[in-house]
Design a protein around this nucleic acid. Structure first.
Lengths: 242, 242
DNA sequence: TACGTATCATGACTTATGTCATCGACCGAA
DNA sequence: TTCGGTCGATGACATAAGTCATGATACGTA
């Protein structure tokens, strides 16, 4: 849900955490281009529940996730919606419509408070023309995303809700998991069960029940939004059977 | 199923139908690069049922679909498998693993007899380094494919088998549909019901039943693998409701 | 604090889809 | 031709997951 808030005034101050950019596609930028980037970038912090852009919006440029978590969501006419992708720190949103010169085909919805750097389409196209490396980096990234999308498509199509939940927990482990000294894994689920349901193509009730079932089988232990996994191998093993 | 056949000797003769390449990413190649392409390209015709590469294979280069239809399929340990993408005339297979320098993560399986042009990884990387335009074209294409993958993910997650079948028929219309002078649409389904099931994440029996149901409702008329649609608008309209 | 709202859990019930089995049609190979 | 195989249609049945309804709890806000 989008909360109605007075529009915040975007900051023109270049993000301080630009170091993240060097670890991503943006690492390909030259010094001059970085200056241009910093000149044109518009940064803004979004709170949980806000939308960055909405399905159907004109694509005005690229959104770089400096920090936070964003869900890319598609909504049907009848109101059903699915989260087709998550964007983490370092990810970039909106290059498909930018390249295709189309409108946005999905809504970007902030799950956790997120800091976004926006770079307008004109400048971005300039970068892509002048710096082939940048395009190559984006190509690699997009190819990777395509692989992940195909992976998820397969999961949604063929696996039970229970198994899809386990996949999701394992997926979220990369960004939201910590391992204690005794080997216990804790995953801090960053989203509601409703969002989890939208990610795996199921209903919230089914997610609730599946989580309980998995807990009853002793594979995980839930407290609030934190999942404790004592035996990660057992959890992963189940993915190989079902 | 893969039929065991004696390995065919690939032809080194450059494809005659190179014109298709100019309408695709390959149109970005310069004259010199085209010569290099033609020097290194290896062409081969695959029959229905053959595989071009298998999940886990090392990625030796790119496969360009000169003509025909190829299914990109992922298989689980338990034997279940899903078609995650179709590759038509003009599509290119294998650039994700090429860029990521990974092994193939899916199997490319020929549905209709297909003519493939293979270009080795080394030459391909040379092209990508020397010709930025080519990379940009691939970026656009990949971004488009990502959008389509997300679209399908959404469909599989949220829609009934019946609706997914209709989506599939509408999808196949682009390549396998013809419209007669009186406005009737004929779509010649290029694949078996089993493959259709693998595309939409369902069982062949469910596909069979769904097709019959849709026919019983008068939306389509089946004869063999040909779908006749008298009122396309009605078919498309159903997509907007369910 | 108290209120309203969203979230989560859970039971009862429905339904879509998967599963298993059978049968006929078709098709290529011997 | 006849055989063996795949494909498609269909029935009977099982079951996973959706739907609807109800409370309990937690959470943010007035």
């Amino acid at each position: 849900m989008v909360k109605d808030k007075p529009p915040e005034h975007p900051s023109k101050i270049p993000c301080q955490k630009a170091r993240y950019r060097t670890e991503t596609e943006w690492g390909a930028l030259t010094r001059d281009e970085i200056n241009l980037f910093d000149r044109d970038v518009v940064c803004k912090t979004y709170c949980s529940g806000e939308t960055i852009f909405v399905e159907g919006d004109a694509c005005k440029g690229l959104y770089f996730v400096e920090h936070g978590l964003v869900a890319v969501r598609k909504t049907e006419i009848n109101g059903q919606s699915t989260i087709v992708r998550l964007a983490y720190q370092g990810d970039t949103l909106g290059y498909r419509p930018l390249l295709a010169k189309e409108n946005h085909r999905a809504t970007a919805e902030v799950i956790n408070d997120t800091h976004i750097c926006f770079i307008n389409a004109k400048t971005m196209r300039h970068f892509l023309r002048s710096n082939p490396k940048l395009g190559m980096r984006f190509l690699e990234h997009t190819a990777l995303a395509l692989g992940q999308a195909e992976e998820r498509m397969f999961q949604i199509a063929a696996l039970s809700v229970r198994t899809r939940i386990i996949h999701l927990v394992v997926l979220l482990r990369d960004h939201y998991g910590t391992i204690t000294s005794d080997g216990t894994l804790f995953v801090d689920l960053p989203m509601s069960q409703r969002d989890m349901a939208d990610m795996i193509g199921a209903r919230p009730e089914s997610v609730s029940r599946a989580l309980r079932d998995i807990q009853d089988d002793g594979l995980i232990h839930l407290s609030g939004h934190t999942v404790r996994v004592d035996r990660v191998d057992r959890l992963v093993e189940e993915l190989h059977h079902h």
